[in-house]
Computed example of a mutant assay.
Amino acid sequence: MDYLKNAFNKVGWFLPAYVQVGFLERVAKQIDDDVVCEKTLAPYLAQIYSPENLAAMVSERYHTVPFVNEYQEIISESVEAHFLGLDHIAVSGLMPVIEGAGKKLAGSRNVEVGSIRSVFVNLAEDCRKEVTDKQIGAVNEIISMLDAFINFTDSNLYINSKKYPFSDNTNRHGILHGAFADSDYGEAINFYKAIGAIDFLCFISALRAPISCFAPSTTEASNSLSLYYRLCLKLAKQKPKPANKAIKSD
Rank of each mutant, 00 (worst) to 15 (best):
D2M: 08
N6P: 00
A7V: 07
W13F: 15
F14T: 07
A17L: 08
V21L: 13
F23L: 13
E25S: 12
R26C: 06
A28Y: 00
D33S: 08
D33N: 11
V36H: 01
A46S: 15
Y49T: 01
S50A: 08
S50N: 14
L54K: 01
M57D: 05
V58D: 13
E60H: 09
N69G: 08
Y71V: 01
Q72F: 09
I75M: 00
E80W: 06
L84Q: 10
G85S: 07
L86E: 10
V91M: 05
G93W: 05
L94G: 07
L94N: 07
M95Q: 11
P96W: 07
I98K: 02
G102P: 03
S108P: 00
S108W: 02
R109C: 12
N110M: 08
V111C: 12
G114Q: 06
I116K: 09
I116G: 10
N122V: 03
L123W: 02
L146C: 05
I150S: 10
F152R: 10
L157C: 13
L157I: 13
Y158R: 14
P165H: 07
N169S: 10
N171L: 06
H173S: 08
I175K: 03
L176Q: 14
S183N: 14
G186R: 05
G196M: 02
A197D: 01
D199P: 01
L201S: 03
S205N: 11
A206Q: 02
P210Y: 04
I211V: 14
N223R: 15
L227M: 14
Y228A: 10
Y228L: 14
R230V: 02
L231T: 13
P242Y: 05
N244P: 00
K245S: 10
A246P: 03
